[in-house]
Design a binder for these strands. Structure first.
Lengths: 191, 191
DNA sequence: GTGATTTCTTGACGATCGTCAAGGAGATGT
DNA sequence: ACATCTCCTTGACGATCGTCAAGAAATCAC
């Protein structure tokens, strides 16, 4: 299963035999069942996750209602940034939406990997940069587009999400209520 | 003037004498007048900027209307990420809102700095990570808060912005039209 | 397969929003 | 000081949105 992680990494950087061995030795792989919460608000995050198979959502609990802010699928790193970097309680939750297989990188594992090879530092840097680009695209979409435009763009660019994920989660990701997304769909398909 | 850059950097990492000399030698400092556009959409970005004094906004031109997505003030790095990393035309513009003093790091300068000391790599990493945290906070605010809540939070956390920046720019940053921000202000102060 | 649970849709209604337009206030330049 | 320009406010109106509630559809568990 770890070979999948290696495959994803080698999309960016080739790894030496020793580096691959390091990963096999240090990285934990764990299965999560649908609906499992891998990380809950209030906890202090000491791990970074990587999605090998499946799908995870980031959500906030706002006065008892559920607001999902992001979906992570195969090939993406998951990190509760604020909590991880400052060792303070997280404000967000992460829930597995399908039976999923994740890599778990503990802080110690990451330290060891960084020490053993600069390749792992580069990978970390690229991962963070990619996340930043994604985040900035999302902000741009909130500032420059209507909810309807965000919906049609998501359909075009990540249409698979609609097949994998309940729509009311996608609704809040787009910044609207589930009822509104239902009506936007109706409005759009009627054209 | 370069000492200001050094002061900001040393909030995170102490610099050796040699490293400070590297910065003095390689980093360009330039003055920009209010309303100057330091970078326009369609251009390919080869520089990273750092705000020593003043204020810059990132904005998109959407069908002729202006949507500002972010404000950069003293101590922040400015980088047109997509354009810089993939050498493709940028979709966004950067405009100076006050007479400002910026550092300019060309790609070559950055390469040289990275070669000369690992400290500069660490600084780059921390800067990117900070930007990511900020971006994720903004996304969370769009997903979990109303426009009015985003307004009151901005007032509490970055109230100086309202003294430095025209309100119609802040409006689109909050995701609403200038008229709506005006009415939100009225609504809020009436309580 | 049947019942239970979850998810999606639809209706109604009040709140909020964007847009167009006009007017006023403040800053700027000469 | 005056005219100009930019920015902010206010009004009106139609569009969109959130919420509450009910019902339909799909999914899940046994």
């Amino acid at each position: 299963m770890i070979h999948k992680l290696i495959d994803y990494i080698e999309l960016y950087t080739a790894l030496s035999v020793a580096e691959k061995e390091d990963l096999k030795e240090l990285v934990e792989i764990r299965q999560f069942e649908k609906h499992a919460v891998i990380f809950r608000e209030g906890q202090i995050s000491t791990d970074i996750y990587f999605v090998l198979e499946g799908c995870v959502r980031l959500f906030y609990d706002v006065d008892g209602t559920d607001k999902t802010a992001f979906f992570y699928t195969e090939g993406q790193f998951i990190c509760a940034g604020e909590s991880y970097t400052f060792s303070k309680p997280a404000a967000e939750n992460y829930e597995v939406l399908e039976n999923s297989t994740l890599c778990i990188f503990s802080k110690k594992t990451i330290e060891k990997l960084m020490q053993r090879s600069i390749a792992f530092e580069n990978i970390a840097r690229i991962a963070v940069e990619n996340e930043l680009l994604t985040a900035q695209r999302i902000i741009a979409s909130f500032v420059t587009q209507s909810a309807e435009e965000r919906y049609t763009d998501l359909l075009k660019n990540q249409g698979e999400l609609f097949l994998r994920v309940p729509q009311h989660y996608i609704a809040t990701f787009l910044g609207v209520s589930p009822e509104t997304l239902s009506r936007i769909k109706q409005r759009v398909t009627r054209r």
